[in-house]
């Protein structure tokens, strides 16, 4: 049992999401930074898809009633285990009665806490992910609160040895965060100048950024005609541009359909970069061909399989190397 002493700013249970029900208006939800989430699970030897905690900007404080193997991946929240620092992007043993305290993210926005066995909440429509707006899934359909007690699932065998990834998943941005996007599906509803400016000028992340979408600020993107279309499908990563000309990048909790013209779609492998951006950060979109996006997805899967297929075979190096992400 994990006791939530303090939940942090916005902490929810997330897994790989809830595909299969979008036709009924159910957003996919799931981890915003799926690579960090998946690697946290891999580090504790969980099967792919296990539920973990997603913390946002400010981490929580957790007391472990029983000894547990834990991994932290994503933004560095200066974690302390019983007062001693533990590295992000690493896995370590928490003793029975141990207390893990996370602070504010030094860079990036989201950190995943995986525990061996996974966070055990009931599956709703095939997923443990929390979709707060509909009170669906996760821990009672909501963000964690002080006093919540989280069950941990059981796991057979031994976990991989404690250690850290040989790279950092989230590095402090130096200059604009480059995010690749595939034009369409409605790029024809924008002028050539509008499309040019979307891919050529940087945008600033506003304070309106959450699991539903990231509202950006920058040079207005010019529509060829109106901005409104008959509502049609929206995927996480879709970049909607309302009449104001300011783009909105749809994220994991986005509605399944929307009525604004969509200029481009952030590629799956890069959506985590948006998820780790915070207010005031600058992003720059780069036009991406479909084949390159598929290749990036292949690389992401390969990286994950490397960590998942052979846990505990010495691949986990003892120290971190900066800037490899």
């Amino acid at each position: 049992m994990i006791v939530v002493v303090a939940p942090g700013l916005l902490t929810t249970v997330q897994d790989g999401g809830r595909p299969g029900f979008r036709a009924f208006g159910v957003p996919v939800a799931g981890a915003m930074d799926r690579l960090s989430w998946a690697l946290a699970n891999a580090l504790v030897g969980n099967r792919p898809g296990a539920a973990a905690l997603e913390m946002t900007l400010l981490g929580g404080t957790f007391r472990f009633e029983r000894s547990a193997r834990v991994a932290l991946c994503g933004a560095d929240m200066r974690a302390l285990l019983d007062g001693r620092p533990v590295a992000v992007d690493s896995t370590f043993q928490v003793p029975a009665g141990g207390q893990l305290v996370l602070g504010a993210a030094t860079a990036g926005a989201r950190t995943y806490l995986a525990v061996r066995g996974g966070i055990d909440v009931p599956e709703v429509l095939g997923s443990r992910s929390t979709y707060v707006r509909a009170g669906l899934g996760g821990f009672r359909g909501r963000t964690l609160a002080p006093g919540d007690r989280l069950l941990v699932g059981s796991a057979a065998g031994e976990p991989p040895p404690p250690g850290a990834l040989p790279f950092r998943l989230v590095a402090p941005p130096r200059g604009p965060i480059r995010i690749r996007a595939i034009p369409g599906p409605q790029e024809e509803l924008f002028t050539a100048a509008g499309i040019r400016s979307f891919f050529a000028t940087p945008f600033e992340v506003t304070n309106r950024n959450d699991r539903m979408g990231y509202h950006l600020r920058g040079a207005p993107i010019e529509h060829a005609g109106g901005a409104d279309i008959v509502s049609d499908p929206v995927v996480p990563g879709a970049v909607q541009v309302p009449a104001s000309g300011a783009p909105i990048v749809m994220m994991m909790d986005a509605q399944t359909a929307g009525g604004y013209a969509k200029i481009a779609t952030v590629i799956g492998a890069d959506l985590r970069l948006m998820a780790q951006a915070r207010m005031g950060d600058t992003v720059a979109f780069e036009e991406c061909a479909d084949g390159d996006a598929v290749e990036a997805l292949r690389e992401e899967r390969r990286l994950l399989e490397g960590w998942t297929a052979s846990p505990g075979t010495g691949r986990i190096a003892g120290k971190t190397r900066e800037g490899a992400s």
Binding site: P183, V230, D232, P233, V235, G237, A293
Partner: peptide
């Protein structure tokens, strides 16, 4: 047939509510 990311194909059969 329009792309919506590398994992999506939008199949458009019209442009209005009909």
């Amino acid at each position: 047939l329009l792309p919506q990311g590398e994992c999506g194909i939008v199949v458009e059969l019209g442009s209005s509510i009909d």
